[in-house]
């Protein structure tokens, strides 16, 4: 599904990703762990098409489609979803309005018509209930005054509504208490499907207690330096990243 080959990317001429390879098959959950500054978030931004990053070498395809040939909104319509570490606030735009704009924009990009409002409302209600999102929250300005947990749940709600092929979760566990972590993880698990893949970027093992990965990667200095099964996450939790920082530098 997602195939990244020898990816190099920089920001303001500073190289961050230095030859990253990653293969993710449909239905799989891949965890990418690594120390701060290893380029984890950069990877998510580069895949999603943020302007500030420049791809200098390598390729990334989603179901064979060259991601770097698409604009950010086209990548979204192609089925790439990024759950932000810090979801943005948009004052004055009701969450519901934003959700509807996003759903319909993607439907139009795929040549489908807008979802009729009653049908859309019903769908949102259903998905929101499962994530403990109140209708009051949906009326408030997008992410404005939301707690950390509310923002992350709102990200998962968007994911659920947009039904992407590939979900990239960037440090979704950051700033969450244990209860919020549970709700968010359950939301993610509910979306696991054989034709959908996840790349879960996290610094800590604890998220992976809730979202069980099939494959765990260690990232350091802009590359994947080690790949293993779920047990690798536990090893990292016990021993820290010090080894890998040294290894990649060598």
């Amino acid at each position: 599904m997602l195939s990244i080959k020898n990816l190099h990317a920089s920001i303001e001429d500073k190289p961050i990703l230095r030859g990253l390879d990653l293969e993710v098959k449909p239905g799989e959950v891949h965890a990418i762990m690594g120390p701060n500054g290893s380029g984890k978030s950069t990877l998510s931004y580069v895949l999603a098409g943020k302007d500030d990053y420049e791809v200098t070498e390598g390729s990334a395809t989603l179901d064979g489609q060259d991601l770097f040939a698409l604009a950010a909104d086209e990548r979204a319509a192609a089925g790439l979803f990024l759950a932000f570490q810090y979801p943005l606030e948009i004052p004055g735009v009701a969450t519901m309005t934003f959700l509807k704009a996003a759903v319909n924009a993607q439907r139009r990009a795929r040549g489908e018509g807008d979802l009729p409002t009653p049908q859309f409302m019903k769908l949102v209600r259903e998905k929101a209930d499962g994530l403990g999102i109140s209708s009051d929250m949906l009326k408030r300005g997008l992410n404005v005054g939301f707690s950390g947990g509310e923002k992350k749940r709102n990200e998962i709600l968007q994911m659920a509504l947009l039904e992407p092929k590939l979900c990239v979760l960037d440090e979704t566990d950051s700033g969450l208490d244990i209860d919020a972590l549970k709700v968010v993880s359950e939301g993610v698990n509910a979306l696991r499907a054989k034709d959908r893949a996840f790349v879960v970027i996290t610094h800590y093992q604890r998220l992976l207690d809730h979202i069980a990965p099939d494959v765990v990667h260690v990232m350091a200095k802009g590359r994947i330096v080690r790949t293993g099964g779920p047990e690798l996450a536990h090893e990292l939790e016990a021993r820290g990243y010090a080894d890998y920082v040294g290894e990649a530098a060598a």
Partner: peptide
Amino acid sequence: QKFYCLQRGLSEEEAVAL
């Protein structure tokens, strides 16, 4: 803010209008 909207599938003009 704009990138956030684009990532959800809105075009740049739709994002600004929103």
